[in-house]
Design a protein around this nucleic acid. Structure first.
Lengths: 347, 347
DNA sequence: GGCGTTTTGAGGTACGCAACTCATTTTGAG
DNA sequence: CTCAAAATGAGTTGCGTACCTCAAAACGCC
């Protein structure tokens, strides 16, 4: 039996004594407050490092008095994925309040850059941290940078703005998600030749464009015997997606693969089943909802590629909290995975 | 814009005032200490419920003074998966010490029931919580129950003892994992007939047996055109697995699917590549290690089914902590998923 | 009504840190 | 050397809870 050392639980007082300074000076160093000579700063920091001292989170939290405020800026409307994220935030409410964390939901039209940017500007100063489902647009980028400059911690959620100075991105790599979809379609259709249909909300949406890019990449390099049909744009709407796909299925009796990049999966599935082709076509879509779960169990949908909304909600909160506390982030924990869900590994 | 209510952050004092009792009485109720009339208990509890009062975690943690001690009882030896769990515990050390949590690793021969049971018995009273990779055996079950009776929180890790009174299980449903493997083999080989080989460590290991069960279930019900060969037992050893599989591959030139249930994946892969059959055989194995990652990227391994060791390590710690604090568990968060990993969705 | 027992109140201390004040010492520029 | 500015020490208060003691009140029983 091997045991790890049981740390002696040092306190700030111990550090002060060992560094030969007063408690106040250690406090100044710890919070990067001015009024300490560089020499002294170094001496204190070395003592902290040497002892691997960690301030007691509970004591720090208790001492600061005021609660932390986080804002989640989410899209208005009935997007089920976003609603799931909001639902999981609700499930955390006991956890949050036991830690005196206030999380406020702010619904905005995140697809209008000026509205989103204006929304973000109003938050300045009022919040310790902001999580935002962000559109990648210069105005939004500027608003994010302003928040960061004002000392607010900013996390992009689901959709990133890599060119901004946001502290963290909580979401998946959509190119890899598209590649995964491509590999699955290619592998599941087998070796027979045929056509593959892709339907997306819009090529203008960054995440959709990235998924399509990754999908095409894999199809071209690994499954060149398959014929990729021109992209359909269903605007994430069930009806429109259904109509477009119905027409396409009628025109091409040899479609053997189908990838729905965005929402509208219900419409896509309806077109497929009404054509009586659900058993012959490998169908892959995104996200796990009550509906995609049903389609998976029925066998209409072969694979759902998803990002875990609960994980994203919790990761965003944890990251904001760690940033606010100036605490390291457990990167492996906060990294969102691309989940491949089939009938037998449904959560 | 909709906002959630910002709770007023009640304290115990507020509850005491509203219930018309003293702080001491509220404290007694909260900690289920004796000396309070049933009537009063009810009144206090109702006040707590009515206000959705949550004790401030930080204050409670600070006030209790002593650190919590958790023990992780893990197998001795070089099992890479277990080593990954231990590694992730190491990565948490800053997180743990900032919360004054002591996690101690205790390596034991978990495959010998009497040794494991004895190991568990020695822990009684010394620890607030124990996470154990448990063998399902009456002696072990009794030892776990003894720990629970002594007030220690117990979590089974990776391998469960469902008949014990352990508080929680952190790990995957291995039957579902086997079903997933079966569905993937069946779907990836396509419609052509052929033989499928299964190699496991031992049928005596509960997790292996469960995976085999799930695998066979799916094969029988959904892919009955495939011929399942008799199980090979490789004892999780590379060399033995390689030899067994080499012989089998020589005997059956029409093997098109291969499922490795346990460890020894390196040996299995070697047999496959030395026979020059890695492109013709759909190969599915468990767990993500440096080696299986390499095999996935090479294309030798088609899919790795895995449970996230980092997640399991963190979930075990969080669950033990929540149990010790008498705090609800975020079940969706602690539920371990069956990950399907392919080349393109590697983390 | 008196007794012992149970229940309750009142109060204190401690936990480790943040944040603040104010006095004192040190430093560097002139 | 002088003086203002910078650096530091010393100390206080409060955060919300756990845990403890002791006294007082209420209760149930005969």
């Amino acid at each position: 039996m091997a045991e790890e050392t049981v740390s002696a639980a040092l306190t700030l007082k111990d550090i002060a004594r060992e560094a030969g300074v007063s408690l106040a000076t250690v406090d100044r160093v710890l919070h990067k407050r001015p009024g300490v000579r560089p020499d002294t700063v170094r001496r204190v920091q070395e003592t902290i490092a040497r002892n691997a001292f960690q301030p007691h989170v509970a004591a720090a939290e208790l001492a600061r008095g005021r609660a932390r405020r986080f804002a989640f800026v989410m899209p208005t409307g009935a997007n089920p994925f976003m609603q799931q994220i909001e639902a999981y935030l609700g499930e955390m409410s006991a956890w949050l309040s036991a830690r005196r964390l206030n999380v406020e939901l702010i619904n905005t039209d995140v697809f209008d850059p000026s509205v989103l940017a204006a929304s973000l500007e109003t938050l300045s100063g009022d919040y310790d941290g902001v999580a935002v489902v962000a559109l990648d647009h210069p105005g939004v980028r500027a608003a994010i940078n302003d928040l960061v400059d004002a000392g607010t911690k900013v996390v992009t959620l689901v959709s990133d703005v890599p060119s901004s100075r946001r502290h963290h991105y909580v979401g998946i790599d959509n190119i890899a998600a598209g590649r995964t979809a491509g590999a699955l379609v290619g592998r599941l259709v087998g070796e027979k030749p045929g056509k593959v249909a892709i339907i997306a909300g819009s090529q203008g949406l960054r995440d959709h464009a990235e998924r399509i890019f990754g999908f095409n990449q894999v199809m071209a390099s690994e499954f060149s015997h398959l014929d990729i049909l021109p992209l359909l744009e269903g605007r994430d709407e069930d009806d429109r997606s259904e109509q477009l796909l119905s027409r396409l299925l009628g025109k091409h009796p040899d479609i053997i693969g189908l990838y729905n990049v965005g929402a509208g999966t219900q419409g896509v599935a309806k077109a497929l089943t009404e054509a009586g082709r659900e058993k012959q076509v490998v169908f892959i879509a995104h996200d796990l909802t009550a509906m995609t779960r049903r389609l998976l169990l029925q066998g209409t949908l072969d694979v759902a590629i998803s990002q875990n909304p609960g994980h994203e909600a919790r990761a965003a909160v944890r990251v904001l909290l760690s940033l606010a506390r100036n605490e390291p982030i457990l990167s492996e924990q906060e990294n969102i995975r691309i989940d491949i869900l089939m009938r037998d590994n449904l959560p």
